[in-house]
Amino acid sequence: MLRRLWERLRHGADTLPYPGGTPGFPERFRGRPVLDPAGAGGPALDLGACLFSPDEATACPEGALRFTTEHRLASRTREGLVTATGELPSPAALQGRARRLFGRSLRLRSVVAGSCGGCEAELVALGNVVFDMARFGVQFVASPRHADGIVVTGTVNPNMRAALEKTYEAVPDPRLVIAVGACAIGGGPFRAGPEAGTGVPAGIPVDLYIPGCPPHPLTILDGLLRLLGRIEDGTRGPRG
């Protein structure tokens, strides 16, 4: 027992200083893509369709698209993920009653609906000692009746659509819907298939879109904290 306590003391804290610290992504990390030369009139980038794969950069003419190490990607609207300039507005925080209700305590129910399991692995990682999402009052709960909202991952395929709709209905109002990952936003790599869906269906209004395949845990955390008004700063330029 004493040995274990000593071990614990010796080890110290593991939780990342976030927000505030510099996450320090490696050079090869594929965060927000930018078009060179970025500018109005050129082609637009859709972060909701992006799979953050090196092949997407090599498929473009030399140097036309590259990935930066910028991890902040979330948007309050689907259109907000489409950018011609590389600029991405910071998602607006909840206001009024929703902010008062959820700002310091948000209970979420996870619905996995036709995914590969990658986004879920990163959602689980948010609970570990490094990311420790619970320190912000954000928790996953075991019942939709205990939840303030749902986190949807996966393409929303025919085999899960009814379960998603029932879970959404079971969450009391006011409720939030957060779409995590390329599949939940638009079908991801599976969008051509008849047995996959193209993301959260129109009948379920989405409050926050978090792109990625899968999104890095800090990308998810950044989106959630901005939605809750726990991080506030201006726009995020193409160089991050």
């Binding site: 092949d55 590969c116 298939g193 008849p194």
Partner: peptide, 29 residues
């Protein structure tokens, strides 16, 4: 079967450039 996305048909019908992204998404772990 709740996670069924039709992976095999997609690997048979999509070009290899997309096939590799589907292969990477058969099981995300």
């Amino acid at each position: 079967g709740y996670q069924h996305r039709g992976v095999e048909r997609l690997l048979e019908s999509e070009p290899a450039a997309r096939g590799v992204l589907i292969a990477e998404s058969i099981a995300g772990d």
